[in-house]
């Protein structure tokens, strides 16, 4: 069990990188970017083919990052230059990436068994277990990325991306090229997602053309779990909450599997979780409204009841309701 939990933490930290990427589009730019389903596989494919070709695994991460950025650029151009709605732009790139990923790998999957990865140094030379190596590498990379992202979105250019995601009219009126800002956000986001894919491929020792399917839902689940459990307005805390959310998601998966859930039902379970989580804000609003109405009804009932023998006070109440109507 403990072994499973440390494995979940390690895997969660690798997925945290993707969750940060999805956060940039979904929350900062306010775009649901489906490109990521293709870019995560693209990152894995690039890393796999680089490593089997004998390249340094760290360099493979960098190349995967750049590949993901190119995919983000593609979606950005589809949206800003060809004016295709963002959701559709993402889907188009995602579908295109399926073929591209097959071309990158030359077949539908590539094994990395017994090859040098970013984890082998920690397992073989330092003698760590695989799970601990994943926690060290994943945690370290996630933390460094969080610092860079925190810095970047505080810079002038980062602020202009945030403003664009928040209010495009305002951004343009303040001289911000919103097309550039959106494209830049998509580039960074997809770069991170591909990096995450490259890490995941190295940790599981294979890349598969199907591995991206449903990844956006997992990232969204992590994002929302993080926000609900640990989220605050402060930006660095939000970034931290993403990593914690990704870890929490993996632990939840371990627990439900332990409780006897069929692993084929995992995606269904994740989708339902996300649907419920996305429904929560609406539910909260409706509940608040119902409470307010109940309160109002109670007040009116009290006023009517008090309108009789109580004298002046009761009269006042009645007058108020009268005016209120």
């Amino acid at each position: 069990m403990l072994n499973e939990i440390t494995g979940a933490i390690g895997l969660g930290l690798l997925w945290a990188v993707m969750t940060i990427g999805v956060y940039i589009t979904y929350r900062i730019l306010d775009i649901a970017d489906l490109t990521v389903e293709g870019t995560i596989t693209m990152g894995a494919s690039i890393a796999a083919i680089c490593i089997t070709g004998g390249m340094n695994p760290w360099l493979a991460l960098l190349l995967a990052f750049l590949g993901g950025m190119a995919a983000g650029l593609c979606t950005g151009l589809l949206h800003t230059v060809l004016r295709i709605p963002p959701l559709l732009s993402g889907i188009l790139t995602m579908i295109a990436l399926w073929s591209i990923n097959l071309h990158i790998m030359g077949r539908s999957n590539v094994s990395l068994l017994r090859m040098e990865t970013v984890f082998t140094y920690f397992t073989d030379t330092l003698g760590m277990s695989k799970n601990i190596a994943m926690i060290v590498v994943g945690g370290g990379i996630a933390l460094v990325l969080m610092c860079i992202i925190y810095w970047f979105f505080g810079t002038e250019i980062g602020c202009s991306i945030r403003a664009t995601g928040n209010n495009q009219n305002m951004a343009r009126a303040q001289g911000i090229n919103t097309k550039v800002a959106i494209t830049l956000g998509l580039i960074i986001s997809n770069g991170l997602v591909a990096l995450s894919g490259a890490l995941i491929a190295q940790s599981q020792a294979y890349s598969d053309v199907q591995m991206g399917t449903g990844s956006i839902v997992i990232a969204l689940a992590s994002l929302i779990i993080g926000e609900v459990l640990f989220g605050k307005d402060q930006f660095f805390r939000r970034l931290l909450s993403l990593a914690l959310g990704a870890v929490a998601y993996r632990i939840i998966i371990v627990l439900v599997l332990r409780l006897g859930m069929d692993s084929n039902d995992l995606k269904l379970f994740t989708a339902i979780t996300v649907a419920i989580a996305l429904y929560l804000p609406t539910l909260k609003k409706m509940a608040a409204k119902r409470m307010a109405r109940k309160q109002q009804a109670r007040l009116e009932a009290e006023e009517e009841a008090g309108g009789g023998p109580d004298g002046p006070e009761g009269l006042d109440g009645a007058q108020i309701t009268e005016e209120g109507r």
Binding site: F152, G154, T155, E156, I157, G158, C159, S160, A163, M170, A171, Q174, G175, I176
Partner: peptide, 20 residues
């Protein structure tokens, strides 16, 4: 203050300097 900082940079190049 972030809104004002965005407005203060209207017409200027926005680079990697801190936003405010």
């Amino acid at each position: 203050e972030e809104n004002l900082a965005l407005a203060y940079r209207r017409g200027n190049f926005r680079g990697l300097r801190w936003g405010i």
